[in-house]
Amino acid sequence: MPYLKSFFVVNKAGGLIFHRSFSSDPPLRQNDYLHLASTFHGMQLMVNEVSPTKGIDGVGAIEFMETSDFVLRSFYTATKVQFFVTGSPKAEKLAEFLKEAHLLYADYIMKNPFYEMDMPIKCELWDIHLRALVDKYNRTNNT
């Protein structure tokens, strides 16, 4: 049964501003998540640099990656904030999930007057809605 494993939001400087794990996999330390996020950010720049063809707008970052233990889908917003989600190997429709998560981000983070750009996200409403979105994803893709 496909399910979501974890979800990351990385700001334009490569700092982790939000992370949640949804699976029963043993969690890493918080420091490791920060490290993973900045590694991914740096890797994206190199991925673009080694491209064998010229990109139209110059952003040729990883959109989808597959390994034997998980799949990863990533999404760049126009403001260079990066969303990425990992799921179990057969997980599908991750792009749709990211798109909806981006909508939630726009609604609950960007419209929140107390949120400062590029700072870690601590917002209860966003947490609740994201949790609901994950549950919806796991439900609809398991039947």
């Binding site: 890797m43 190199m46 970052a61 390994t67």
Partner: peptide, 25 residues
């Protein structure tokens, strides 16, 4: 870096190399 990243993100202790990745180009 890519292999390190994938291994770290995997729940298993063994190395977990990527199979492929895709960019728009």
């Amino acid at each position: 870096e890519l292999k390190n990243f994938c291994t770290k993100l995997s729940p298993k202790d063994a190395a977990n190399p990527p199979k492929y990745y895709m960019t728009p180009y």
